[in-house]
Structures are given as C-alpha cells and as structure tokens.
C-alpha cells in the first residue's frame, strides 16, 4: 500500500496537457475561397498525469475524434498549447512531429480497418519499428513477440503469421493494441476502442488496456460515447458537447453527482440492465447535437436544455466554473 502511494507520489507528474486547444477545418470552395470553418475543437483544456486515464465522452460529431487526432499530431491545432512529457509540441517541424507521433500509441475504433489487410501480424507490428529505425533485426523480432505476449495473443506462433481477416474482432483489436505499444509509448490515445466490438469482448479489451497501463505507467486518453464502461476503467471524465468541454471531473464525482444538464441527460440515457425498462420511457432532451459549422450562440446546449436561463444561456458562452475542487462545469447554473 505504502509502496504504491510512494510510487504514485513520485511519478504523479503531468504527462500531457492541452490549453485552450482549437482545431478548425477551413472549408474552401474550389480549394481556394474560404467559405467558413468547422470548429471541431474549440477551446479545450485538460491535463493528464502518468498512469491515469481521462475519458472524453460525447456524441458523434462533438469533435472528440478530432481532439484525438490533434493530440496525435494528425491534425494541426489552429490555436492553443500542447505539452507532452514536458515538451511543447507547437511549432515542431515535420520530422520532430513524426518522432512525436511515434511516442503516442493510437488505438482505433474499427480494428479490421485499422490493420492493413495485406500484411501479416508480424509485419504489422514491425512496421512502426522499421519506420522509426529502432534497433537491429533481432531486437525487432524480439520486441514483436514481446508485445504479442503482452496483449495475450499466445502462443505467439499461432498468431504471428496470420492475416488480420483470419482473426476475430477481439483478436484484431489486440493486434491494434500491440501495435500501439510496440514503440514503448508513454501515452495511449484510444478512440472508441470497443464500440465496434461484440459486447462480450469489450470488457476483455478494456481490462487489457488497463493492465498495460498499470504495467507501464501509461497515460491513457480514452474516447468514447458510452459511459457504461467508464466507472472501472478511468480516473477522470471530460464530457464534450459541441466542440467544447461541458464538464470535467473525477469519475466518481461525475457519475454520482453530475452537474451539467447535458451530463445528466447522457447518464440517464445509458442503458441499464433492468427488466422494468420495458414499461418506462427515458427522458431524452429534444433536438439534435449542434452543427459545428454554425454552432448556436451562447451555450451550445441551450436549445435542448431544460434549465435554460433566457437572456444569458442563449447569448453568452458559459465559462468553466469550479463547482468543487477538481470538478469544473461550463454552465451558467453554477456561476459564482
């Protein structure tokens, strides 16, 4: 117990932070005339410490995948600051950016699509090593076997020469995870790692990611639209709505005491296993998520909100208020 807390105490330093991060896509007509921009990520800030997981939850089209890509360096931020492992990421050149990317593992949603169908598992896992020229051939071979064992695709011989289509969805996702850790990253971005998988293997995959996180003291950014699995696999949650964070806190705080009206709606919509469901209808806020091309004025949730304060919510964007230590919420209901 003591040992753990000491270890935590020592390594509890910030691994990744984003400050006022904005990623905008410009829409151009004929590749030239600017006709507008999609603000997919619009002023997002968070911090992640080593060995911890932050879950970013939101509906499709809220900008959470763009946030993931920005963190990975696949999209360039329009504004804001990114720090990884004590280094500022803004303004890196192409080569530095490439080496930065290889230090962050990436787990994608669709495991079959995430694996080149014409490569064997061995080749898939060697690719990052070859590209980043890490070590000799022998070392590479050893590392490939090592990660396969780590994601429990054992005996390794049964899997190493297979093509992705010969594996089940869960096994494919394990290969994706193996690839994400083959470069020994310190941060893993998991973008909906289980939403395409069968319900019965979802927990297995989450347990695997959790296990790797503990073994290597990794930071994990877990992006999902499904809150039901969050409790056991994450420390922090950020609820994203319309390209902004609506609420950000520790898992327990949010699950037990959600503040933002959107978080509340989201939590009540999570399916629960209860035979009584057959007769009861769920409360769902009316309307649809906002367009990121023309977001609503003021608070982006106000057209769907039950607690709208007329003249305020529809005019001015709410600031992030700290309702409790470590629990911030962007809602005028909690202004001080």
């Amino acid at each position: 117990m003591l040992a753990v807390s000491v270890r935590r105490g020592v390594e509890n330093k910030i691994l990744f932070s984003a400050k006022d991060l904005c990623t905008w896509f410009e829409l151009r007509r004929w590749g030239f005339f600017r006709v507008g921009s999609v603000k997919a990520v619009d002023g997002v800030s968070f911090e992640l410490r080593r060995g911890e997981t932050i879950t970013i939850v939101g509906e499709s089209g809220c900008g959470k995948s763009t946030l993931a890509k920005t963190i990975l360096g696949l999209c360039l931020p329009a504004r804001g600051e990114l720090n990884f492992d004590g280094k500022r990421l803004n303004g890196l050149n192409t080569r530095q950016m490439r080496s930065h990317r290889s230090k962050i593992g990436y787990i994608q949603q669709d495991p079959y699509g995430a694996l080149p169908p014409f490569m064997t598992v061995r080749r898939i896992l060697e690719e990052p090593l070859r590209i980043n020229k890490t070590g000799k051939k022998e070392e590479m071979k050893r590392r490939v076997r090592e990660v396969l064992a780590e994601v429990k695709l054992t005996p390794v011989e049964d899997f190493i020469d297979k093509f992705p289509h010969m594996l089940s969805g869960g096994q494919q996702q394990r290969v994706v995870i193996a690839r994400s850790i083959v470069m020994k990253p310190r941060l893993i971005v998991a973008d909906e790692p289980i939403s395409m998988l069968d319900a019965s293997v979802r927990i297995e995959i989450l347990e695997l990611i959790r296990g790797l996180q503990h073994a290597h003291n990794l930071g994990v950014i877990y992006i999902t639209h499904d809150l039901s699995t969050v409790r056991h696999f994450s420390e922090h949650i950020a609820v994203m709505y319309g390209a902004k964070f609506a609420e950000k806190a520790k898992v327990k705080d949010i699950l037990d005491n959600p503040l933002h009206p959107y978080t509340r709606a989201l939590l009540s919509a999570v399916p629960k296993l209860d035979p009584a469901n057959v007769t009861t209808f769920k409360e769902v806020p009316p309307g649809e998520p906002p367009s990121l091309l023309k977001p609503p004025s003021g608070c982006r949730f106000h057209p769907r909100c039950y607690a709208i304060i007329k003249g305020l919510c529809d005019v001015e964007s709410p600031l992030e208020f700290e309702a409790k230590k470590g629990h911030s919420v962007a809602c005028w209901l909690y202004r001080k």
Binding site: S200, V201, R202, I203, E204, E207, L227, S228, T229, V230, R231, H232, L255, L267, V270, K272, L273
Partner: peptide, 11 residues
C-alpha cells in the same frame, strides 16, 4: 457493465 454498481464486469 453498469454505471452505478461497484461490481466489476467480467468477460
């Protein structure tokens, strides 16, 4: 998996 229960889901 369940949102409220402390019991960890199994696979």
């Amino acid at each position: 998996p369940s949102l409220r229960q402390e019991k960890r889901p199994e696979f």
